[in-house]
Design a binder for these strands. Structure first.
Lengths: 175, 175
DNA sequence: TTTCAATAGTTGGACGTCAAAGTAGTATGG
DNA sequence: CCATACTACTTTGACGTCCAACTATTGAAA
Protein backbone atom coordinates (compact mmCIF):
# COMPACT_ATOMS: atom_id res chain seq x y z
CA UNK A 1 0.00 0.00 0.00
CA UNK A 2 1.19 3.55 -0.65
CA UNK A 3 2.52 4.62 2.71
CA UNK A 4 3.67 8.20 2.68
CA UNK A 5 3.69 9.01 6.39
CA UNK A 6 1.68 12.02 7.48
CA UNK A 7 3.23 14.96 9.26
CA UNK A 8 0.83 14.58 12.16
CA UNK A 9 -1.20 12.00 14.01
CA UNK A 10 -4.55 11.77 12.23
CA UNK A 11 -6.18 10.29 15.30
CA UNK A 12 -5.03 13.13 17.54
CA UNK A 13 -6.31 15.50 14.87
CA UNK A 14 -9.71 13.83 14.92
CA UNK A 15 -9.72 14.01 18.71
CA UNK A 16 -9.04 17.75 18.55
CA UNK A 17 -12.00 18.15 16.24
CA UNK A 18 -14.18 16.21 18.65
CA UNK A 19 -13.17 18.39 21.58
CA UNK A 20 -13.63 21.52 19.49
CA UNK A 21 -17.27 20.61 18.91
CA UNK A 22 -17.79 19.99 22.58
CA UNK A 23 -18.06 16.22 22.37
CA UNK A 24 -15.89 15.84 25.45
CA UNK A 25 -17.52 12.71 26.81
CA UNK A 26 -16.86 10.85 23.58
CA UNK A 27 -13.51 12.23 22.46
CA UNK A 28 -11.32 9.70 24.24
CA UNK A 29 -13.52 6.80 23.22
CA UNK A 30 -13.45 7.93 19.61
CA UNK A 31 -9.68 8.24 19.74
CA UNK A 32 -9.35 4.78 21.22
CA UNK A 33 -11.62 3.15 18.68
CA UNK A 34 -9.86 4.84 15.80
CA UNK A 35 -6.46 3.92 17.20
CA UNK A 36 -7.43 0.30 17.47
CA UNK A 37 -8.55 0.31 13.84
CA UNK A 38 -5.22 1.70 12.68
CA UNK A 39 -3.08 -0.53 14.87
CA UNK A 40 -5.06 -3.51 13.72
CA UNK A 41 -4.43 -2.57 10.13
CA UNK A 42 -0.70 -2.10 10.71
CA UNK A 43 -0.20 -5.32 12.62
CA UNK A 44 -2.31 -7.41 10.28
CA UNK A 45 -0.33 -6.12 7.32
CA UNK A 46 2.94 -7.08 9.01
CA UNK A 47 1.73 -10.52 9.94
CA UNK A 48 0.28 -11.24 6.52
CA UNK A 49 3.50 -10.04 4.88
CA UNK A 50 5.49 -12.46 6.99
CA UNK A 51 3.06 -15.30 6.23
CA UNK A 52 2.66 -14.66 2.51
CA UNK A 53 5.78 -16.69 1.54
CA UNK A 54 4.14 -19.69 3.18
CA UNK A 55 0.87 -19.19 1.35
CA UNK A 56 -0.79 -18.42 4.66
CA UNK A 57 -2.85 -15.59 6.08
CA UNK A 58 -3.32 -14.81 9.75
CA UNK A 59 -6.76 -16.39 9.69
CA UNK A 60 -5.37 -19.65 8.31
CA UNK A 61 -2.34 -19.53 10.58
CA UNK A 62 -4.52 -19.14 13.65
CA UNK A 63 -6.50 -22.24 12.75
CA UNK A 64 -3.37 -24.28 12.13
CA UNK A 65 -1.87 -23.25 15.46
CA UNK A 66 -5.10 -23.96 17.29
CA UNK A 67 -5.09 -27.49 15.90
CA UNK A 68 -1.40 -27.84 16.71
CA UNK A 69 -2.11 -27.13 20.36
CA UNK A 70 -4.72 -29.86 20.66
CA UNK A 71 -3.80 -33.34 21.83
CA UNK A 72 -5.02 -35.14 18.76
CA UNK A 73 -4.59 -32.41 16.17
CA UNK A 74 -8.29 -32.16 15.52
CA UNK A 75 -11.23 -30.03 16.56
CA UNK A 76 -14.87 -29.56 15.53
CA UNK A 77 -15.40 -26.59 13.22
CA UNK A 78 -17.84 -25.02 15.61
CA UNK A 79 -15.34 -25.09 18.43
CA UNK A 80 -12.74 -23.46 16.20
CA UNK A 81 -15.17 -20.63 15.62
CA UNK A 82 -15.78 -20.22 19.33
CA UNK A 83 -12.09 -20.17 20.20
CA UNK A 84 -11.14 -17.73 17.46
CA UNK A 85 -14.36 -15.74 17.87
CA UNK A 86 -15.31 -15.88 14.23
CA UNK A 87 -18.54 -16.66 12.43
CA UNK A 88 -19.25 -20.27 11.39
CA UNK A 89 -19.26 -19.17 7.76
CA UNK A 90 -15.75 -17.80 8.19
CA UNK A 91 -14.58 -21.12 9.60
CA UNK A 92 -16.05 -22.95 6.63
CA UNK A 93 -14.26 -20.55 4.32
CA UNK A 94 -10.85 -20.87 5.99
CA UNK A 95 -11.07 -24.64 6.36
CA UNK A 96 -12.01 -24.91 2.67
CA UNK A 97 -8.78 -23.17 1.71
CA UNK A 98 -6.60 -25.02 4.19
CA UNK A 99 -8.07 -28.29 3.00
CA UNK A 100 -7.51 -27.53 -0.67
CA UNK A 101 -3.87 -26.83 0.22
CA UNK A 102 -3.63 -30.16 2.00
CA UNK A 103 -2.92 -28.58 5.37
CA UNK A 104 -6.00 -29.89 7.11
CA UNK A 105 -8.60 -32.50 6.34
CA UNK A 106 -12.28 -32.71 7.13
CA UNK A 107 -13.39 -35.84 8.93
CA UNK A 108 -16.85 -36.80 10.18
CA UNK A 109 -17.37 -36.86 13.93
CA UNK A 110 -17.46 -40.45 15.16
CA UNK A 111 -20.74 -40.15 17.07
CA UNK A 112 -22.41 -36.85 16.11
CA UNK A 113 -23.10 -36.82 12.40
CA UNK A 114 -23.79 -33.08 12.41
CA UNK A 115 -20.28 -32.25 13.47
CA UNK A 116 -17.26 -32.01 11.19
CA UNK A 117 -13.76 -32.32 12.55
CA UNK A 118 -10.78 -30.51 11.09
CA UNK A 119 -7.60 -32.57 11.34
CA UNK A 120 -4.22 -31.01 10.77
CA UNK A 121 -1.94 -32.92 8.39
CA UNK A 122 1.77 -33.54 8.70
CA UNK A 123 2.27 -30.98 5.96
CA UNK A 124 0.14 -28.54 7.95
CA UNK A 125 2.18 -29.12 11.08
CA UNK A 126 5.45 -28.56 9.26
CA UNK A 127 4.23 -25.42 7.58
CA UNK A 128 2.87 -24.00 10.83
CA UNK A 129 6.20 -24.66 12.53
CA UNK A 130 8.19 -22.90 9.84
CA UNK A 131 5.77 -19.99 9.72
CA UNK A 132 5.88 -19.60 13.48
CA UNK A 133 9.64 -19.34 13.40
CA UNK A 134 9.52 -16.44 10.97
CA UNK A 135 6.55 -14.81 12.64
CA UNK A 136 8.16 -14.95 16.07
CA UNK A 137 11.41 -13.53 14.79
CA UNK A 138 10.19 -10.87 12.36
CA UNK A 139 6.93 -9.71 13.89
CA UNK A 140 6.07 -10.84 17.39
CA UNK A 141 9.50 -10.18 18.89
CA UNK A 142 9.60 -6.75 17.24
CA UNK A 143 6.22 -5.40 18.24
CA UNK A 144 5.74 -2.75 20.83
CA UNK A 145 7.73 0.19 22.11
CA UNK A 146 8.91 -1.49 25.31
CA UNK A 147 8.16 -4.81 27.00
CA UNK A 148 6.49 -2.95 29.85
CA UNK A 149 4.21 -0.92 27.60
CA UNK A 150 3.42 -4.11 25.76
CA UNK A 151 2.38 -5.90 28.95
CA UNK A 152 0.36 -2.88 30.05
CA UNK A 153 -1.34 -2.71 26.69
CA UNK A 154 -2.17 -6.39 26.76
CA UNK A 155 -3.72 -6.38 30.21
CA UNK A 156 -5.75 -3.25 29.55
CA UNK A 157 -7.10 -4.75 26.37
CA UNK A 158 -7.88 -7.95 28.19
CA UNK A 159 -9.98 -5.88 30.60
CA UNK A 160 -11.72 -4.35 27.65
CA UNK A 161 -12.40 -7.72 26.08
CA UNK A 162 -13.66 -9.12 29.33
CA UNK A 163 -15.98 -6.17 29.77
CA UNK A 164 -17.23 -6.77 26.25
CA UNK A 165 -18.18 -10.31 27.15
CA UNK A 166 -15.44 -11.83 25.04
CA UNK A 167 -14.86 -14.33 27.80
CA UNK A 168 -16.05 -15.07 31.28
CA UNK A 169 -14.99 -12.48 33.91
CA UNK A 170 -13.28 -15.17 35.92
CA UNK A 171 -9.88 -13.83 36.94
CA UNK A 172 -7.20 -15.48 34.84
CA UNK A 173 -3.45 -15.20 35.31
CA UNK A 174 -1.87 -13.59 32.27
CA UNK A 175 1.51 -15.21 32.84
CA UNK B 1 -22.64 -13.52 15.48
CA UNK B 2 -23.06 -16.39 17.93
CA UNK B 3 -21.37 -15.06 21.06
CA UNK B 4 -21.30 -17.67 23.76
CA UNK B 5 -18.53 -16.32 26.01
CA UNK B 6 -15.69 -18.65 26.78
CA UNK B 7 -14.77 -19.67 30.29
CA UNK B 8 -11.22 -18.40 29.84
CA UNK B 9 -9.23 -15.83 27.92
CA UNK B 10 -8.23 -17.46 24.64
CA UNK B 11 -5.39 -15.00 24.19
CA UNK B 12 -3.90 -15.77 27.58
CA UNK B 13 -4.28 -19.43 26.72
CA UNK B 14 -2.34 -18.93 23.49
CA UNK B 15 0.31 -17.01 25.38
CA UNK B 16 0.70 -19.93 27.80
CA UNK B 17 1.22 -22.25 24.88
CA UNK B 18 3.87 -19.93 23.47
CA UNK B 19 5.76 -19.83 26.76
CA UNK B 20 5.42 -23.59 27.11
CA UNK B 21 7.26 -24.09 23.84
CA UNK B 22 10.00 -21.71 24.90
CA UNK B 23 9.08 -18.88 22.59
CA UNK B 24 9.61 -16.37 25.36
CA UNK B 25 10.85 -13.53 23.21
CA UNK B 26 7.71 -13.62 21.10
CA UNK B 27 5.02 -14.51 23.62
CA UNK B 28 4.11 -10.96 24.62
CA UNK B 29 4.16 -9.74 21.04
CA UNK B 30 1.92 -12.58 19.95
CA UNK B 31 -0.48 -11.81 22.80
CA UNK B 32 -0.55 -8.15 21.84
CA UNK B 33 -1.18 -8.81 18.18
CA UNK B 34 -3.94 -11.28 18.95
CA UNK B 35 -5.51 -8.93 21.47
CA UNK B 36 -5.59 -6.13 18.96
CA UNK B 37 -7.32 -8.39 16.44
CA UNK B 38 -10.03 -9.29 18.95
CA UNK B 39 -10.54 -5.78 20.28
CA UNK B 40 -10.74 -4.51 16.73
CA UNK B 41 -13.41 -7.06 15.95
CA UNK B 42 -15.42 -6.18 19.05
CA UNK B 43 -15.26 -2.43 18.58
CA UNK B 44 -15.95 -2.56 14.87
CA UNK B 45 -19.02 -4.69 15.51
CA UNK B 46 -20.32 -2.17 18.05
CA UNK B 47 -19.70 0.78 15.79
CA UNK B 48 -21.26 -0.86 12.77
CA UNK B 49 -24.27 -1.88 14.84
CA UNK B 50 -24.79 1.70 15.89
CA UNK B 51 -24.36 2.94 12.33
CA UNK B 52 -26.50 0.32 10.61
CA UNK B 53 -29.80 2.22 11.18
CA UNK B 54 -28.29 5.10 9.20
CA UNK B 55 -27.21 2.88 6.34
CA UNK B 56 -23.60 3.62 7.23
CA UNK B 57 -20.52 1.59 8.03
CA UNK B 58 -17.48 2.83 9.91
CA UNK B 59 -15.57 3.20 6.65
CA UNK B 60 -18.28 5.40 5.17
CA UNK B 61 -18.75 7.31 8.39
CA UNK B 62 -15.05 8.12 8.59
CA UNK B 63 -15.10 9.60 5.10
CA UNK B 64 -18.16 11.69 5.86
CA UNK B 65 -16.63 13.06 9.04
CA UNK B 66 -13.36 13.79 7.33
CA UNK B 67 -15.19 15.88 4.74
CA UNK B 68 -17.24 17.53 7.48
CA UNK B 69 -14.06 18.77 9.12
CA UNK B 70 -12.74 20.45 5.99
CA UNK B 71 -13.43 24.11 5.30
CA UNK B 72 -15.17 23.58 2.00
CA UNK B 73 -16.58 20.10 2.53
CA UNK B 74 -14.44 18.60 -0.20
CA UNK B 75 -11.20 16.70 -0.55
CA UNK B 76 -9.31 14.84 -3.30
CA UNK B 77 -9.81 11.07 -3.15
CA UNK B 78 -6.10 10.49 -2.82
CA UNK B 79 -5.88 12.71 0.21
CA UNK B 80 -8.77 10.85 1.81
CA UNK B 81 -6.82 7.66 1.38
CA UNK B 82 -3.74 9.18 3.00
CA UNK B 83 -5.66 10.56 5.97
CA UNK B 84 -7.58 7.36 6.64
CA UNK B 85 -4.62 5.16 5.70
CA UNK B 86 -6.51 3.06 3.22
CA UNK B 87 -5.74 1.89 -0.30
CA UNK B 88 -6.89 4.04 -3.25
CA UNK B 89 -9.10 1.20 -4.40
CA UNK B 90 -10.85 1.22 -1.04
CA UNK B 91 -11.51 4.93 -1.37
CA UNK B 92 -13.01 4.40 -4.80
CA UNK B 93 -15.22 1.71 -3.36
CA UNK B 94 -16.46 3.73 -0.39
CA UNK B 95 -17.00 6.89 -2.41
CA UNK B 96 -18.97 4.87 -4.96
CA UNK B 97 -21.39 3.78 -2.27
CA UNK B 98 -21.64 7.17 -0.59
CA UNK B 99 -22.26 8.77 -3.95
CA UNK B 100 -25.00 6.32 -4.92
CA UNK B 101 -26.67 7.18 -1.60
CA UNK B 102 -26.43 10.87 -2.42
CA UNK B 103 -24.19 11.60 0.58
CA UNK B 104 -21.21 12.82 -1.43
CA UNK B 105 -20.64 13.83 -5.00
CA UNK B 106 -17.65 13.48 -7.27
CA UNK B 107 -16.41 16.68 -8.87
CA UNK B 108 -13.43 17.25 -11.16
CA UNK B 109 -10.51 19.18 -9.74
CA UNK B 110 -10.47 22.71 -11.18
CA UNK B 111 -6.84 22.64 -12.34
CA UNK B 112 -5.57 19.06 -12.16
CA UNK B 113 -7.63 16.85 -14.41
CA UNK B 114 -6.24 13.69 -12.85
CA UNK B 115 -7.71 14.50 -9.49
CA UNK B 116 -11.28 13.85 -8.37
CA UNK B 117 -12.79 15.72 -5.46
CA UNK B 118 -15.38 14.24 -3.14
CA UNK B 119 -17.89 16.84 -1.96
CA UNK B 120 -20.20 16.14 0.94
CA UNK B 121 -23.85 16.96 0.32
CA UNK B 122 -26.31 18.58 2.70
CA UNK B 123 -27.90 15.17 3.11
CA UNK B 124 -24.47 13.76 3.93
CA UNK B 125 -23.85 16.44 6.53
CA UNK B 126 -27.19 15.84 8.21
CA UNK B 127 -26.75 12.09 8.28
CA UNK B 128 -23.23 12.36 9.67
CA UNK B 129 -24.48 14.67 12.42
CA UNK B 130 -27.24 12.31 13.45
CA UNK B 131 -24.96 9.29 13.31
CA UNK B 132 -22.35 11.05 15.41
CA UNK B 133 -24.90 11.76 18.10
CA UNK B 134 -25.77 8.08 18.42
CA UNK B 135 -22.20 6.91 18.08
CA UNK B 136 -20.95 9.30 20.75
CA UNK B 137 -23.69 8.32 23.14
CA UNK B 138 -23.88 4.56 22.59
CA UNK B 139 -20.33 3.61 21.71
CA UNK B 140 -17.59 6.19 22.19
CA UNK B 141 -18.73 7.35 25.63
CA UNK B 142 -19.07 3.75 26.78
CA UNK B 143 -15.75 2.33 25.67
CA UNK B 144 -12.98 1.44 28.03
CA UNK B 145 -12.78 0.34 31.60
CA UNK B 146 -11.76 3.71 33.05
CA UNK B 147 -10.93 7.10 31.52
CA UNK B 148 -7.35 6.75 32.74
CA UNK B 149 -6.85 3.31 31.20
CA UNK B 150 -8.38 4.66 28.04
CA UNK B 151 -5.93 7.55 27.87
CA UNK B 152 -3.04 5.23 28.67
CA UNK B 153 -4.13 2.83 25.98
CA UNK B 154 -4.45 5.59 23.43
CA UNK B 155 -1.02 7.07 24.01
CA UNK B 156 0.69 3.70 24.01
CA UNK B 157 -0.97 2.81 20.74
CA UNK B 158 0.02 6.18 19.33
CA UNK B 159 3.63 5.31 20.15
CA UNK B 160 3.15 2.03 18.38
CA UNK B 161 1.69 3.70 15.33
CA UNK B 162 4.43 6.28 15.27
CA UNK B 163 7.06 3.55 15.48
CA UNK B 164 5.33 1.81 12.59
CA UNK B 165 5.71 4.90 10.43
CA UNK B 166 2.02 5.67 10.49
CA UNK B 167 2.90 9.32 10.86
CA UNK B 168 5.92 11.50 11.33
CA UNK B 169 7.60 11.10 14.74
CA UNK B 170 7.16 14.79 15.44
CA UNK B 171 5.88 15.11 19.00
CA UNK B 172 2.21 15.95 18.95
CA UNK B 173 0.03 16.90 21.90
CA UNK B 174 -2.70 14.37 22.40
CA UNK B 175 -5.03 16.80 24.11
C1' DT C 1 9.39 20.17 -27.79
C1' DT C 2 9.28 15.56 -27.27
C1' DT C 3 9.71 11.72 -24.51
C1' DC C 4 9.35 9.33 -20.43
C1' DA C 5 8.59 8.94 -15.52
C1' DA C 6 5.46 10.00 -11.83
C1' DT C 7 0.77 10.74 -10.10
C1' DA C 8 -4.52 10.03 -9.66
C1' DG C 9 -8.06 7.16 -10.07
C1' DT C 10 -10.52 2.94 -11.69
C1' DT C 11 -11.21 -2.00 -12.64
C1' DG C 12 -11.01 -6.87 -11.69
C1' DG C 13 -9.75 -10.48 -8.70
C1' DA C 14 -8.59 -12.50 -4.14
C1' DC C 15 -9.46 -12.81 0.70
C1' DG C 16 -11.79 -12.51 5.29
C1' DT C 17 -15.82 -11.18 7.67
C1' DC C 18 -20.68 -11.21 8.66
C1' DA C 19 -25.93 -12.10 8.19
C1' DA C 20 -29.64 -14.78 6.49
C1' DA C 21 -31.43 -18.81 4.71
C1' DG C 22 -31.14 -23.63 3.89
C1' DT C 23 -29.99 -28.73 5.00
C1' DA C 24 -29.10 -32.43 7.93
C1' DG C 25 -28.83 -34.63 12.26
C1' DT C 26 -29.90 -34.70 17.37
C1' DA C 27 -32.53 -34.07 21.50
C1' DT C 28 -36.65 -33.25 24.08
C1' DG C 29 -41.48 -32.95 25.50
C1' DG C 30 -46.05 -34.70 25.13
C1' DC D 1 -42.90 -42.68 19.48
C1' DC D 2 -43.39 -38.63 17.04
C1' DA D 3 -43.50 -33.62 16.37
C1' DT D 4 -40.84 -29.86 17.36
C1' DA D 5 -36.95 -27.28 18.83
C1' DC D 6 -32.22 -27.01 18.73
C1' DT D 7 -27.45 -27.62 16.93
C1' DA D 8 -23.74 -27.96 13.22
C1' DC D 9 -22.42 -26.77 9.06
C1' DT D 10 -22.85 -24.87 4.27
C1' DT D 11 -24.33 -21.61 0.75
C1' DT D 12 -25.19 -17.15 -1.04
C1' DG D 13 -24.65 -12.41 -1.01
C1' DA D 14 -22.91 -7.97 0.82
C1' DC D 15 -19.05 -5.29 2.41
C1' DG D 16 -14.24 -3.61 3.15
C1' DT D 17 -9.54 -4.41 2.28
C1' DC D 18 -5.63 -5.20 -0.60
C1' DC D 19 -2.77 -5.92 -5.00
C1' DA D 20 -1.83 -5.79 -9.89
C1' DA D 21 -2.82 -3.93 -14.07
C1' DC D 22 -4.73 -0.28 -16.72
C1' DT D 23 -6.00 4.67 -18.42
C1' DA D 24 -5.45 9.48 -18.26
C1' DT D 25 -3.00 13.47 -17.01
C1' DT D 26 0.93 16.08 -15.37
C1' DG D 27 5.70 17.16 -14.89
C1' DA D 28 10.51 17.01 -15.87
C1' DA D 29 14.51 15.99 -18.48
C1' DA D 30 16.94 15.69 -22.80
Amino acid sequence: MPRRPLRFDPVAEARRNWVERGWLEAADGMALVTSVMRVHQILLARVDDALAPFGLTFARYEVLMLLTFTRTGQMPLGKIGQRLQVHPASVTNVIDRLESDGLVQRRPHPTDMRTTLAVISVKGRRLAARATEVLNRDVFAEVGPTPEALQELFTTMADLRRAAGDFDPTPQPTH
